[in-house]
Design a binder for these strands. Structure first.
Lengths: 197, 197
DNA sequence: CGCCGAGTTGAACTGAATCAAGAAACGTGG
DNA sequence: CCACGTTTCTTGATTCAGTTCAACTCGGCG
């Protein structure tokens, strides 16, 4: 009963923050998805495997990372209210490039690709929801490209913290550094009071 | 007559390469769009203005660039078969960050945002087309982030040329350099036979 | 208490930027 | 079709932001 209610609240959030869903759509989504809660450090997507699930974070925080010369490079962070998946795997039906790991105890709604495809075929509503969500991601990626390409390490760090002030409380510096495309050492120097880089 | 036929061919290409359109949808799209042909160096979107048109390139080649400290930085190139617009302006109804300029005499199909919105509201088909097109863009941006963040100047150049061998014939090196996020001088050294960087 | 992971600090190194000069190609008018 | 200016590209010398490698500090925890 608790779960059913939480699920409904999550679906309302989606309808409100992304694209309005009709009563019928909400009900179909409710039947197609399930609410999950997993502990910190759980892995929901593994590199090299197919990842055919889409998640919506109700609360908590996760990161995606991939391997580059034996190092874990953080690709993105996601928080409550975000849709996540292994992009290359979910949208291209390919082996996942990234691993997705929980950074906190996290509650999310899980839907299989098959279910999303059925919903999308049946209701224009869901097609729009998909378009809106992907457009949002696309615009974020576009911003990030500008940021990576033309900001100094310091500017990238400061902008990130401005956008997500809670990040420092929730995520270790190593992950932030690799997300920014800089080394932990450089990040440490940037953050140092006597900023001598 | 010529134009009508070309328009139909372009719409067939869209239906085939992105997402199938019903006969009715094709006809509505035909009525909502127009075929244009402009000379090299024409500008179809200006930085600082609203850009409320979407284009589909039938043939030719364009680039988008923005200003960074008085320098023109190429944001992307697009070719026949690509949908283009000023992303931040078209999708967020904001002032365009970029200017879009033709690199060759280019023929394209033009649709206003208003018309796309009407089509998308009326036909699930177009909602899907939009979703598919944006998903493609999103995946390309994702790839580009990995490339920018972890490849050397030389690797970025070589991969780009592998993906688009015709680029060198169609686009000056300055634009390629700024697209790759490197200087023209560095690109020149990379391309030099006695590769001493 | 001692270990371990996370973060800091230092010194040397490096890929690419910057600044500066020139060469080559390109197009336009005489 | 050649001379001229402009744009495009190349080459060299120097500088710099950020990396790498290595040592060290700090806080938590079995």
């Amino acid at each position: 009963m608790r779960d059913t209610n939480d699920l409904e609240i999550a679906i309302e959030t989606i309808s409100k923050n992304y694209s309005p869903l009709t009563v019928e759509c909400k009900s179909d989504l409710k039947n197609a998805s399930q609410l999950l809660s997993l502990d910190k450090s759980s892995v929901i997507v593994k590199e090299g495997q197919f990842a055919d699930k889409l998640y919506f974070i109700v609360n908590g925080c996760v990161r995606a990372f991939y391997n580059k010369d034996g190092k874990e490079i953080t690709d993105w962070f996601a928080f409550e209210g975000d849709f996540i998946s292994s992009r290359n795997s979910f949208y291209q039906n390919a082996l996942s490039h990234c691993t997705i790991e929980l950074l906190e105890q996290t509650t999310f709604l899980e839907i299989t690709r098959e279910a999303t495809e059925t919903l999308i075929d049946q209701h224009h509503c869901f097609e729009r929801l998909g378009r809106v969500a992907i457009t949002k991601t696309m615009l974020q990626l576009q911003e990030r490209i500008i940021s990576i390409q033309f900001e100094t390490a310091q500017q990238k760090y400061e902008n990130l913290i401005k956008m997500r002030p809670d990040l420092l409380q929730r995520v270790p510096l190593t992950f932030i550094a690799s997300y920014l495309g800089i080394t932990l050492e450089t990040l440490s120097r940037i953050r140092s009071p006597k900023n001598r880089i």
